[in-house]
Amino acid sequence: MIHVQAVLPVVAEAVDKGGGIFPLQLIGFALGVLGLVFFLGTAVGMIRFPDFYTRMHAAGKGDTLSTMLMLAGFALVTMEDFSLGSWLLVVKIMAIVLFLYITCPTSTHALMRAAFEDDEMPLEEKDLAKRKKK
């Protein structure tokens, strides 16, 4: 932080001020940590699941919800007062959540369809059992 203060006085001032409303901040912290927990599920699933299709389930769902929770948490944490400006910031952050709500399932579906139409990807349970044994 020291160097940042030296170069950008405006930024440093804003960092030092760093207000916030305490009860809202607590909710925000809780939401953020919850998001991290769900993202942990995704990360473990990405490593542990046996084949591409099941990994897709882990990634496509955990991604959406954890991002939503974390962004909502940060929207609450950074809210300084109830003025119009900070409300607009919250709405803007929630707009990101809305866009993700539309785009995430779409990209999941697009990748799934691509894999399904490509011949090199096996789908049967036998292949899965083989991979599990390995």
Partner: peptide, 29 residues
Amino acid sequence: FDRMLAVNVIGTKTAVLLVIIGTLFGRVD
């Protein structure tokens, strides 16, 4: 496809990380 899946997840998380960096700078807007 596994690679593309991971790329997609990283792309979504980049959005969150940008908000976090903005909070650290104090300029989320």
